Amino acid sequence: MLTPPSFIDDKAIAGAVATHWLPEATEARYLPWGFGAHHWRVAGGGTTLFVTLDQLGPRHTAASLEATYAGAAALAAAGLDAVCAPLPSRSGRFTVDAGCGALSVTPWLDGRSPTETEAGEPRHVGEVVAALAALHRAAPPEGLREWTPRVGPRFADEVRARTAEPWTSGPLAQEARAALAARHEAIARWTSRYLELADLARARRDAWVPTHGEPHNDNQVITACGLTLVDWESLALAPRERDYADLLEAGAGERLDHDPAMVELFALDWRLSEIAEYLSWFAAPHTGTDDDRTALEGLYEELSAAEE
């Protein structure tokens, strides 16, 4: 997230990391990176850690997030070099309850994320294809959650009902409400097709594999040792096409064994889950921060598919 959270400060983050992972931790610096979780750089005793605060729901419970990060650690232990896995706390768990979410840490990586242009270059695409192929061949870790549809058959009706009256929750509320209301028919059409494809995917459950879920360029880090995939919060057992959106856009289709129907499923999975999250975001109190404006841009981007 671009804006530091109001409900926890850097000192509390450093203290939690010192208690559960790195006793020497003294310095915590907020990182305005990503969108969805809060991040810090925490250092002490010559060690640097990357710290994440995940807020639970709608994607996770405390138990499912712990199982997900434990699964990522199991994949790394099994020899998947591209997995930047969370580090266990003193208790052996990979997440710690911070009262306002779940804390986790990973090693600090000396490297950088590629730009969208760099991520589309043939050599880099080949590295990502190879990393995902290894992931998809891996034995599923014990307790790995299974992908499930993010919205149900009544989603479009819920959107219509929640946007029927003016919103007074913040400075961007009415603009977001109007945009959602204007796309109701498209949302209903997308939802119907999405659930049809989800049924098809479940009928092929025996072919599901471990998937990252969001292996786009922002979740890639290029280090001296090669490509590393970060942010394993979305790890799940699913059709392999869940990981292919950016690769297919980069022209890697001939290198990927993929089912167009499953590609369509996960394009809709992303779009509808984003719309659902933005609906909740702007119906709730907000103040017009940089995160709020970025979220509104994201909402328009997802809804614009109605005009394609």
Rank of each mutant, 00 (worst) to 15 (best):
N217G: 11
V105C: 11
G34K: 07
L265G: 11
G99I: 00
L53P: 06
A78M: 04
R137T: 06
M1A: 11
E27F: 02
P141W: 02
H212M: 10
L197E: 08
G101L: 00
A138E: 09
A252V: 05
A236Y: 02
L256P: 01
I187L: 15
G298T: 10
A37I: 12
W21V: 04
S273C: 02
E158I: 08
A245W: 09
R193H: 14
T289P: 14
C84I: 01
P5H: 12
H60K: 04
A267K: 00
R123G: 15
D110K: 02
G45V: 08
A176T: 07
P171N: 11
G226V: 10
G298N: 10
H39R: 05
A261E: 15
R242Q: 13
G15P: 08
Y194W: 06
P215C: 05
A14G: 14
R90P: 10
P122Q: 09
V42R: 02
D9N: 14
W33L: 12
A74I: 07
T115C: 13
V159L: 05
T115G: 15
T289M: 04
L135K: 08
E254A: 12
S280C: 07
W281L: 06
G253T: 06
G253N: 06
P285S: 04
N219M: 07
V17C: 02
P149E: 01
R293A: 13
L235V: 11
E116M: 11
A156M: 10
V159Q: 02
D54N: 14
H20M: 05
A179S: 15
T294P: 00
A70I: 03
I13Y: 07
R41F: 01
T19Y: 13
T68A: 04
A283R: 02
T117D: 15
T289C: 08
D243I: 05
E165P: 04
T52Y: 02
P153G: 12
V105N: 07
D243G: 03
E66C: 07
T106A: 10
W232E: 11
V125D: 11
R293K: 10
L247N: 09
R137W: 01
A63C: 05
T61V: 10
G36C: 12
R59P: 04
L268M: 13
H136D: 06
G170I: 04
A276N: 12
L248G: 09
A98V: 03
W190P: 12
P260L: 09
S280G: 14
Q55H: 12
A134K: 15
A130V: 05
L132T: 12
V96H: 10
P4G: 04
D218N: 12
A250H: 08
R204W: 04
R189L: 14
P140F: 00
S234M: 08
E121P: 14
P58G: 03
R154T: 15
G99V: 01
Y69Q: 03
